[in-house]
Design a protein around this nucleic acid. Sequence first.
DNA 1: TCGCATCCTGAAGCAATCCTGACGCCTCCC
DNA 2: GGGAGGCGTCAGGATTGCTTCAGGATGCGA
Lengths: 222, 222
Amino acid sequence: MKVLIVEDQERLGAFLEQGLKECAYTVGWARTCASARDALAETTYDVILLDLGLPDGDGIELLKQWRASGFNEPVLILSARDSVADRIKGLDVGADDYLPKPFSFEELLARVRSLVRRQSAVKNTVLEHRGIRVDLLSHTVQVDGKPIDLTSREYALLEIFMQNPGRILTRTLISEKIWSSHFDVDTNLLDVYMSRLRAKLEKGGDEKPLFKTVRGVGYQLL
Amino acid sequence: MKVLIVEDQERLGAFLEQGLKECAYTVGWARTCASARDALAETTYDVILLDLGLPDGDGIELLKQWRASGFNEPVLILSARDSVADRIKGLDVGADDYLPKPFSFEELLARVRSLVRRQSAVKNTVLEHRGIRVDLLSHTVQVDGKPIDLTSREYALLEIFMQNPGRILTRTLISEKIWSSHFDVDTNLLDVYMSRLRAKLEKGGDEKPLFKTVRGVGYQLL
DNA sequence: TCGCATCCTGAAGCAATCCTGACGCCTCCC
DNA sequence: GGGAGGCGTCAGGATTGCTTCAGGATGCGA
């Protein structure tokens, strides 16, 4: 799950970045309108946190342009301006939510979750498949009821598969989601992590393996 | 006192809303599973009234997911299904009470009051977990009956964990609660206090440690 | 069946993160 | 004014996860 922070204040930005990373979001951070545009041109994000007072232009204008050009990811406006008029204006030009500063991080998290959920309609908080349980909120994993320790990379990888059981996921697709856009192709990092996941998830028996390797293409969660 | 009604029948919902409002409850009303999830993500409620037959999913499933993700507000199931099996199923997945339709509003009120009382009774006095006793009123702590001296920071930290045993709490979330909001990210204050807490609370033996550190994320009270 | 491309996986270096003892500053209290 | 205790900072060492690498295994086309 990827979040783009558009915020020029160093402190607040760092705080948000850190906090969201801890919750296993992939985080991008743009400090200006210009770099926000660049960031969105490069990859897609699931949610955008948009501060209004930016050094090189107004966030409202930016949002208006985005919406005009058919861009429809959910946008959550963070702003010190909290008059009703500002709120209405923000929502009018296409923001999905409006959070006045100062806010508690907990509340921000709740709203981000709500936006993500709304976007992907019936997305569950718990994914279950072949005895594997992934709790998207607490980021915990169980296999046949037994809790399994995964590192954050391993978890991210597993989540992608659990969101798409049965589907063949290409290496590029996976790598892009886990290691952000410009991923070095000449590495076997993905292989290594697949190996670790299998080691941690697959039970001893000679059952059907969990992951199928599709040569030259990617992997598939069976 | 806040109550969330999850009910798709317009008539009954309106009736409940009206009745509860008259009794000075703050009332939220969700007509679908999806909006119930949103509502809970946004704020906390003191009691949830949950109807089972919802247009976009089963209430039982919803409740199961909530409980799985560590959500523990009291839930009162309202249902036309009243076989003993249904009752057991509901209570099994974590409902606190079960009220078969049709019911008198009088009775509903009584049960809501009872749930609120039960919860706040538990909430306001003492938290206990793995031999640790935290008295929220006097701010005193005991481990296996022996009183432990904690400084106020240490106590605040412990209280947060005791309010959420088993849940992974991110560093940002904790820091935000203990220190001001928008906490400085580049400090190891939290680490230091975790270290102090462990030193004071964990007993010599080689038992399961009390706190688990989740690298890059936060800590968890086991 | 051979040879090549691809994949698997253990080992090891590296970097980030975490732990913890030491210390200085501050406030409160005597 | 002096002492005690709490708070926050710092730094070195320990730990853990991330990444790279290399050698072997496996699959696939010729």
